[in-house]
Design a protein around this nucleic acid. Structure first.
Lengths: 156, 156
DNA sequence: TAGAGTTAGACAACGTTGTTGTCCATATAG
DNA sequence: CTATATGGACAACAACGTTGTCTAACTCTA
């Protein structure tokens, strides 16, 4: 009747995240997006389908400096997922927007995430998955995007 | 009655991990281990209280190269958490062992993890936490240690 | 309207954590 | 005894982050 050691919970949370993200990217690669990486995916999600964002805004949304955001944007631009356009109303601002391919990758990711969740629900039961989400929502901050993982994990 | 979008689950899993690890390190810092970082903690855990390991073994256990493991050991040595000794039976091998301080940090971490888990159980109910662990155990690989996070998240 | 302050982006220098590749010393096997 | 494998050190480099500095452009106010 004893509980597992306390360190198992965070380990399993991380492993769960990793399993899902690995599966997502394996499927994305299979469906024409082999260059997509977890970080790029988060960035695309943060850029979104709306009117576009600037490097400063993206950095703020992801919890990193504008320079770091700018480098990520450079990569995504090179891969054809985003494009930059100068704001007609403010010559300083460069608006970053998803390209058609970028939107496609986002849509595809959402479908794949839903499929993965459905398989979890098949294995564990829909109510258990829902309970897990609910419990995690209670224990984590509401703000969904604070994904400065490399820095966080590296230097704390 | 619709399910949340599929991407919420992995996001919450990551956030949950992060919340717990952040809390652990805040508490560790408060109790005399301000230099401890997530990665160091994982390395200490992998080194363990046993007879010590070599850089090659540690690298294998953590899924990184022996050079990377060696660099982490350098850091931990500088912080006073481990010490190296040459194997009397094999002059090539340098055995890495936790110092008293290293063991203390490990023991402290275990206590803190247990406390965090107890608080989750208070908030969510013991059975819900147990269910979460059980479900995650079913959906993740049994091998607990494969913590090459920076590389994995960065370059995939 | 002119000047001061703020903001966006680019560029450079650097830190951390990884990677490969090379090399030497030591063990082990044929 | 020699050939091979292994452990560790060192160097060069890649990826992703940081801070600092500079310039261009906007905005506010005297």
């Amino acid at each position: 009747m004893s509980s597992p050691p306390g360190f198992e919970l965070p380990l399993r949370l991380l492993l769960g995240f990793r399993v899902i993200i690995d599966e997502l990217h394996a499927e994305l690669a299979r469906r024409g997006h082999p260059g997509m990486k977890p970080m790029y995916g988060f960035a695309c999600q943060a850029i979104g389908r709306g009117g576009g964002v600037t490097a400063v805004e993206l950095g703020r949304a992801m919890g990193v400096s504008k320079q770091a955001a700018g480098k990520t944007i450079d990569q995504l631009e090179k891969l054809g997922y985003v494009e930059r356009a100068t704001d007609p109303a403010d010559a300083r601002r460069k608006i970053v927007q998803l390209t058609a391919r970028g939107v496609e990758s986002l849509t595809l990711s959402e479908q794949i995430f839903d499929q993965i969740r459905a398989r979890w629900a098949e294995t564990l039961g829909a109510d258990r998955v829902r309970a897990m989400e609910e419990d995690l929502r209670r224990m984590t901050p509401p703000d969904p995007f604070q994904l400065d993982m490399p820095r966080w994990f590296g230097t704390f």
